[in-house]
C-alpha cells in the first residue's frame, strides 16, 4: 500500500525555485532516505510533505487521499477538516528536537495525545510504554533542559510515535549531536525500521542510510539527481553522486 505519494512538487521562495519537479512515493514499511549537499532543498521537501510549507505546484497524497492537488497550474489544498485528518498520519522529528521546554518528559509525550482526544489513562500508559522501550523511564519527570541531546531526541521520537503515525519523517535527526549520542539515536531509528515503521529520513549519515534504506534519493539544486536502492546508488558511476558519497564516507 502506498502511504505517501508526491507528484511533480514545486516550491520557490520569493521567485527562487528551491524544489523543481520532484516526484516520489513511499510504500508501507519502507524506509526512504534523502541525501544531498547543503541547500539542495531536502528540508524544504520534507516541510512540503509535512505541510509546514505550502507547495506551489504538484500533488501530495497520503493513503490515497489528496492533501493537495495541482489544478490548472495551481496547487489546491484540501479543506481544513480533511487536512486535519490527513495530518494525523504524519509524524515529524526535527533536527533540534523542538521539545516543549515547559513540559516534563512525560507531559511532552502525553499532552499531544490529549489534544488528539485520548483519555489521560490511555495517553499515560502509551507514554510509559514508549519511554520504557526507548530506555527513558528514569527520566520521565525531568525537563528537556535536564537531558542530553541524544535523550532529547529520543523523547521527541517518542512524542511523535505516541500519536501512532502511519509515516514518520526525520530531518537530520542526529546532526545536532556528537558521535556517541548520534549512535544512540540511530539505534532507535534502526529498531523502528526493524518493526517496519514507514520512514522518510533526511540524513548525512551515509553508512546508516545504506544499511537501513529501501530506497535512496540524491538531491541537488531542487532536483532528484539520482535515486535507487542503496546497492545501486553506492556503486553508481554517476560522478557527482560518487564524489558526494565518497567525500562523506572518507
Amino acid at each position: 500500500m502506498k502511504i505517501l505519494e508526491m507528484n511533480h512538487i514545486k516550491k520557490s521562495f520569493d521567485g527562487v525555485g528551491v524544489i523543481s519537479d520532484i516526484s516520489l512515493s513511499v510504500n508501507e514499511g519502507e524506509v526512504l532516505s534523502i541525501i544531498g549537499p547543503s541547500g539542495s532543498g531536502k528540508s524544504t521537501l520534507l516541510r512540503c510533505a509535512t505541510m509546514l510549507e505550502r507547495m506551489d505546484g504538484g500533488d501530495l497524497v497520503y493513503l490515497g487521499r489528496y492533501a493537495a492537488r495541482e489544478e490548472d497550474g495551481r496547487c489546491v489544498y484540501a479543506s481544513q477538516q480533511d487536512l486535519k485528518e490527513i495530518k494525523r498520519n504524519i509524524g515529524l522529528v526535527f533536527q533540534n528536537f523542538n521539545l516543549f521546554p515547559h513540559y516534563s518528559v512525560l507531559k511532552n509525550i502525553v499532552a499531544p495525545q490529549l489534544i488528539a482526544g485520548k483519555t489521560k489513562e490511555n495517553a499515560e500508559s502509551r507514554a510509559m510504554e514508549l519511554l520504557k522501550s526507548l530506555g527513558l523511564t528514569d527520566h520521565r519527570d525531568k525537563y528537556p533542559c535536564q537531558l542530553s541531546g541524544g535523550q532529547q531526541q529520543r523523547v521527541s521520537i517518542a512524542r511523535a510515535l505516541a500519536l501512532d503515525p502511519q509515516i514518520l519523517f526525520f530531518d537530520e535527526p542526529t546532526s545536532a549531536l556528537d558521535p556517541e549520542l548520534t549512535a544512540e539515536v540511530l539505534r532507535v531509528i534502526k529498531e523502528l525500521a526493524s518493526q517496519h515503521m514507514t520512514m522518510v529520513i533526511v540524513t548525512h549519515e551515509m553508512e546508516f542510510a545504506r544499511e537501513l534504506s529501501d530506497w535512496i534519493i540524491f538531491m541537488e539544486n531542487g532536483y532528484i539527481q539520482a535515486e535507487g536502492t542503496p546497492k545501486d546508488l553506492f556503486s553508481t558511476d554517476n560522478a557527482r553522486v560518487q564524489s558526494f558519497v565518497g567525500k562523506l564516507r572518507a
Binding site: G91, F94, F100, P101, H102, P112, A116, R159
Partner: peptide, 27 residues
Amino acid sequence: VPHGQYEAANVLGYNRSQTFFHIILPQ
C-alpha cells in the same frame, strides 16, 4: 520563542488557539 515551537505544535495536531494557550503563552 523559537519558531520550531509553533511547527512542533502544528505537526502534533495543535490548532492555533491550543498552540497559543498551551505552548506559546506559558513560555
